[in-house]
């Protein structure tokens, strides 16, 4: 029996055949969508729904003129800044609210209130306070992402196993080591799902903020193209965003998550 268990431990976790199947499925789905899009575009004027070929042309145009990469970089930079700030403040606050029952109970009502405030309202305030600048978008992303991170980390601190704390106590482990070796690993999966959610939301609200209070970035370009009824460019920008999110998700976030949480049962994942 031990030999069997051992071979299972050293066996690769994901079956390779299954993975190729999934890739094939995804490619099929993309092909299906493109065909349906193309067929629909044949019947309507191009300023309502441009076809795949037209959008591709628009894409090469904005990519050649250089604004594509520049604007993507600007938007990504703003989202990342807002997100990092939200993490720097949200992570410690979540831990503090979780560790201190009194503080947690006192501040608890703020989180749902912050979550219900629309990003358009944050954007309006941001324009009043910061004008048309980078800070406007960063602020909106920050205000949207922070409550999500706090909530998740807070929830994570509630799941810290008292038995593990007692174990550390028996070993006379100092408090900071308990934080580092027991609290942090317990919270990490919760933080990660919160951060993921926050990043996705941040991305979406950043566009809203940019259409309202910015003179650069993808959101601004989207509005500009829409104002000039360059529907093909609107589609081109949208497509770029979708591809970028997919790359972030499948290329970075998911592999990182699989590595960090490899100790979880396969069934749970």
């Amino acid at each position: 029996m031990p030999e069997v268990l051992e071979s299972r431990i050293h066996a690769p976790t994901a079956a390779r055949g299954l993975r190729y199947g999934v890739v094939l499925q995804r490619l099929g789905l993309v092909a299906f969508i493109v065909i349906v899009w193309w067929l629909l575009a044949l019947r309507v004027p191009h300023y309502v729904l441009p076809g795949p070929a037209r959008v591709w042309e628009a894409l090469t145009l904005i990519s050649d003129s250089g604004t594509l990469w520049q604007d993507l970089g600007i938007t990504l930079g703003r989202v990342a800044t807002g997100f990092v700030l939200a993490t720097l403040i949200g992570l410690p606050l979540g831990i503090i609210f979780g560790a201190s029952r009194r503080l947690g109970e006192f501040f608890e009502p703020i989180i749902p209130v912050m979550n219900t405030v629309s990003s358009a309202i944050w954007a309006t305030f941001a324009i009043i306070w910061f004008g048309v600048s980078n800070a406007t978008t960063v602020f909106v992303v920050f205000m949207t992402a922070m409550p999500l991170i706090i909530t998740n980390v807070w929830q994570g601190t509630r799941t810290v196993n008292a038995d593990f704390i007692e174990l550390a106590h028996v070993l006379r482990m100092p408090a900071w080591k308990v934080m580092w070796k027991i609290y942090l690993p317990t919270i990490l999966p919760y933080f990660f799902s919160g951060a993921r959610l926050a990043f996705g939301f941040g991305w979406r609200v950043s566009l809203v903020a940019e259409t309202l209070g910015s003179s650069s970035g993808v959101g601004y370009r989207l509005r500009q193209a829409a104002d000039l009824i360059q529907t093909d460019q609107v589609f081109a920008w949208t497509l770029t965003l979708v591809v970028m999110m997919a790359i972030l998700e499948m290329g970075i976030l998911r592999p990182l998550e699989n590595y960090l949480f490899r100790w979880k049962k396969e069934a749970e994942q």
Binding site: L167, L171, R172, M173, P174, K177, K181, P185, W263
Partner: peptide, 17 residues
């Protein structure tokens, strides 16, 4: 046992104080 640690790292935990 800490679920996020391997058997070896769990045993090491006793020495980490």
């Amino acid at each position: 046992l800490l679920p996020w640690r391997t058997a070896l790292r769990n045993v090491e935990f006793s020495l980490e104080a």
